[in-house]
Write a protein that binds this DNA or RNA. Structure first.
Lengths: 222, 222
DNA sequence: TATACTAAGTGTATAATGAACACTAAGTCG
DNA sequence: CGACTTAGTGTTCATTATACACTTAGTATA
């Protein structure tokens, strides 16, 4: 093991997460303030070192739980970043994941407001530690692309929702307007939605039918 | 560093490559016979440990050059496999890449036939070491998917080619027949091809116009 | 040297999909 | 009860995808 490490690199391994949500009509990502060097006091993506015997995905879910309290949300491996100089102190390779969480799931009393954690609009990012801005750019690019050809956006919706809310979610992700009638036609044609029978009666207007997703995996996910 | 390694995993890091080519109308992948334990004498994907100061991509290109003698071919990072038990002896995480090489480039005198290296049809694979069958399945899936919506297939073509050869290449990758007229219309409509002016006069039939790709990157690659 | 053979090369009609577009319905509020 | 707000709905037109068969230009050979 020692002779080996003279020739071969045995870097630290981390997982870093781009955890997205949508709130107040903005695509947001979770950032945490670093308490330690390097980049102390800088914002960064939540992450952590891989533990002994832990799979990469398990590590990612652990970080997710630690920071958000949630599990059972959409998550996929994004890319592995291994530039030799990405950590100024020692060689660290990070396996990046991205996750989607409906804001409603987060906005609970238990996720108390803390100053070392924030949800930042992806179009107004502070300076980030390490190569986290690259990671984030890549994650946003993938999310936008997948919104176009998969139903990944579902990962951001609450249990029940109006079609207009679903449309708004798509519009926020792809950063463009959609035609209401065409959108509704297309969504209903996929056959992934079902009416709940309930109606949303908030607001001074005609009530909206509430929908939910049929129970199934996210299609076309890879 | 020592205290750290008591808590955190510092695994060996390898890169493994699914190097594809097409020969005799079959999609083939390079396999190498392992000379060492574990899995001695088993076939495996070509790979190797990450060296000090080496980026992941550089490691992948190094392995590619060692095994094929080529560079400047299409390669992309595929996925990172980190199951704690994927190597029976110690923790090793592998970053998988896939590469595409035109057979003509490989079929040179210098790539002498050796018995510890083979090109295996992806539909007739031997037993593979580690989790390499999973890696390969994932690579084939990605290649097939990308053939449908990108021009990645270009990475397998020689400098000049007939349109019928290009069509055959697509048919091998996606494992389905295509309509000749529609295929030609679609390809020429992309505006990525240009006539070379030369003709292929092999065979007892009408000569075919030879085409080449306009010089540009592979589109839609991520 | 004519005929058989082979792969190259070409166009059109139909179906399916995508895009543009405006009004009525059903509630609440004042 | 009239003003306001969002929900909900169809049709036309343009674009794209699909299905499909014959002529062309060479070589081989009888």
């Amino acid at each position: 093991m020692n002779t080996k490490s003279e020739i071969y690199e045995q870097p630290g391994i981390t997982v870093d997460l781009a955890i997205f949500t949508v709130n107040t009509n903005k695509l947001k990502v979770m950032l945490v303030k670093r308490a330690e060097d390097p980049f102390r006091e800088n914002w960064s993506l939540p992450g952590g070192f891989l533990l002994h015997g832990e799979s990469l995905q398990a590590a990612a879910y652990r970080v997710l739980r630690e920071k958000t309290g949630v599990k059972n949300v959409y998550m996929e491996q994004l890319y592995t970043f291994g530039d030799p100089k990405r950590d100024p102190r020692s060689r660290v390779i990070t396996v990046a994941y991205f996750a989607l969480i409906p804001w409603k799931v987060l906005d609970q009393p238990e996720s108390k407001k803390v100053t070392d954690l924030t949800w930042s609009s992806v179009d107004q990012l502070p300076k980030l530690a390490f190569d986290h801005k690259d990671i984030l750019k890549y994650a946003v690019k993938r999310l936008r692309a997948k919104a176009g050809y998969s139903n990944i956006v579902y990962g951001l919706m609450p249990e029940q929702f109006r079609l207009s809310e679903l449309q708004t979610m798509y519009e926020i992700i792809i950063d463009d307007k959609l035609d209401k009638r065409n959108f509704r036609k297309r969504m209903l044609a996929t056959n992934l939605l079902q009416e709940t029978g309930e109606k949303d009666i908030t607001g001074a207007h005609r009530p909206a039918m509430l929908y939910q997703f049929k129970k199934m995996e996210i299609a076309f996910s890879n």
